[in-house]
Amino acid sequence: MMGYAVFWLMLAQAGHGSQGGQDMGAVWNSHMMEEVADAHHFIIPGLNRVIDLPQLPPIHIGALSVDLSPTKHVIWLMIAATLCALTLIWTARRTHGKGAGKAPKGMANVIEAFVIYLRDEVALRNIGHGGERFVPFVLTLFFFILFMNLLGLVPFGATATGNIMVTGALAVLALVAIEVGGFLHLGPRAYLKTIVYVPEGLPWFGKIPMALIMTPVEAIAKLARIFALAIRLFANMTAGHLVILSLVGLIFMAGAGAGSIKDVVWPAPVLMAVAIMLMEIFIALLQAYIFAMLTSVFIGLVRHPH
C-alpha cells in the first residue's frame, strides 16, 4: 500500500510540477479512496504495472445479479490464503514427522504458541465441551484474517479485510458455524428455544406475549452480533489505512508548502505516520484475535444457553 502510494505521489508531483498544495490535496484525496476501495485492475507490487482483470458476465440468481469477475481484493484474498497455507504447512512440517521428537524452536515455535493459545484459551475455553470440532475453523479464521490484515501494511499491499463484502462473507460463515454448531449440539427443540424465548415459571397468558416480544429480539440479536463482527473488522482496517494515508499525504503537503513550513513541519506527520503504522501492526493482530474470539464466544453461547 504505502510503497505504491509514495511512488505514485512522486510521479504525481513530477507531473503537476509547481502547481502547489491545493490541487495535490484533491488528487491525494481521490488516491486514498483508490487505495482502500476495490477495483477491477491489479497493480503488480513494486512494478507499478497495471493488469486489467478479466470481466465475466454477471450470473442472475433471482433478483440478485452476481458478478464473479475477480477484483483486486479477490487477488489479495488469494495471496493471503496462499501465504497462510504455505506458512502453516511449513510449520506443520517442522513440528510433525521429522521434527516431532525435537524441541520446538524459531518461527515454527512462535506459530505453535499462537496455535496453542487459540486452541486452549480462545476455542476450547469459550466453546466448552465438544469445542475440539471447531478448533480448525477458529484457527483458520484467525490466521486468514491476520494474513489479510498484515498484507495491507506491506508496501504495495492491500487489505481484503478493508472491504465490507469480505468481512461480511466471513461473518456469515461464522453465523453458519454458530447456528449449525448450536443446532447439532442442542437438537431441534432446544435450538428453537434459543430463538423463541419462552420464560419459565410464567402462566400461559404471560408466556405468549413474552414469546411474541422476545422472539424478534432474540433473532435480531443473532444477526446483530454478526453484523457487528463484520463492521468491526472492516471499520478498523479501513480507518487505520485512511489515517496512515492521510498522514503520508500530510508529509507531502508539508513538503510542498512555503519555505519555512517545509523545513520545520515535516517531522510531525512522519513521526505520526510511523506511530500509527506501529499501532496498525498491533491492530492487525488484535482484530484477527477479536474476530476468532467472538466467534468462539458466540458458538459457546448458543451451545450452552442459560
Partner: peptide
C-alpha cells in the same frame, strides 16, 4: 468503486477461498 460497494461476487469468492 466506493467504500461500501456491494459486490456479491466478492462474497462468493471469499467463501470459496476460505
Amino acid at each position: 468503486g466506493g467504500l461500501f460497494a456491494i459486490n456479491p461476487g466478492l462474497v462468493i469468492w471469499t467463501w470459496v477461498i476460505f
